[in-house]
């Protein structure tokens, strides 16, 4: 009597397979981010059409807000729209692992263009117009904001059936954060408290930038990063739980 011998792949083999799949899907988006953000920074710095600080702020807006928002839309929703999510969930790997690989590649995808921009900035301009603490504060701000926007949009949109709805959720997160900060700024006279609250929000990280003008920048940054690790871990845990329940998708 003969029968097929079923050898279950190890967890590392599964991770490698999933990584290969994700990178195959992501390379074009990463290249696009590098091309546009890196090109903008390179031309802006070399031509000196605008101040270096304005180039950096442009990089924060494009690389820390718009690009991650676009990248977060298809992470899970595209799989749902194409129906391939069920195939992923039937793989001999837990759902959370599939989502973890997706998340890791997405985070790399939004960080790589920023690192390229950092390299270009260092090579072409350095600190010629921007003070070192402002320079690093803006880059760290861009990185933190990129990861935040990506994670908030992806995790809150985990149940949505298509990319457009995830995009709506991302827009709601960003606009909602800004509106909330307006309210808090209007209502609270204590500036320190406003900054402390802002540091919890996905796009209200400007408290870090303000702190860069003081000597307490490093401790402030570490504190903000620790808070975001907590928030993003909770968000991701929620997303992993929802991802494993395909029957509870909206729409």
């Amino acid at each position: 009597m003969t029968g097929a011998i079923h050898i279950a792949p190890s967890r590392w083999q599964m991770i490698a397979v999933l990584l290969r799949k994700e990178l195959h899907e992501w390379w074009s988006a990463i290249a696009l981010g590098c091309f546009t953000i890196g090109g903008f920074v390179a031309i802006g710095l070399q031509s000196r059409l605008i101040p270096d600080e304005a180039v950096l702020i442009g990089m924060v807006i494009s690389g820390g807000l718009i690009f991650p928002l676009i990248c977060a839309m298809p992470v899970v929703a595209a799989e749902r729209a194409e129906g391939s999510v069920n195939l992923l969930l039937r793989l001999p790997a837990p759902a959370w692992l599939v989502l973890a690989v997706k998340t890791a590649v997405a985070v790399v995808g939004v960080i790589v263009p920023l690192l390229l921009a950092l390299a270009i900035m260092g090579a072409l301009a350095g600190y010629r117009e921007v003070r070192p603490n402002i320079f690093w504060a803006l880059f760290l701000l861009a990185g933190l904001m990129a990861v935040n926007v990506l994670m908030w949009t992806m995790c809150l949109g985990i149940r949505q059936p298509n990319e457009a709805r995830v995009g709506l959720i991302g827009a709601a997160v960003c606009i909602g954060t800004v509106m909330t900060m307006f309210f808090i700024d209007d209502a609270l006279s204590n500036e320190q408290m406003v900054k402390a609250i802002a540091a919890w929000t996905p796009v209200g990280l400007f408290a870090v930038l303000d702190g860069s003008r003081s000597e307490e920048f490093v401790s402030l940054l570490l504190g903000v990063a620790a808070r975001h690790v907590v928030v993003l871990s909770l968000l991701w845990a929620y997303a992993a739980w929802r991802f494993s329940q395909p029957g509870r998708t909206r729409g």
Partner: peptide, 25 residues
């Protein structure tokens, strides 16, 4: 969508380069 994004990215950088040539420092 990727094609559209690449097209716009290229056009944007092209216009930016044009500006850099004309009034760049």
């Amino acid at each position: 969508p990727e094609g559209v994004a690449w097209t716009f990215g290229t056009v944007f950088l092209g216009l930016f380069s044009l500006a850099a040539v004309q009034v760049g420092n």
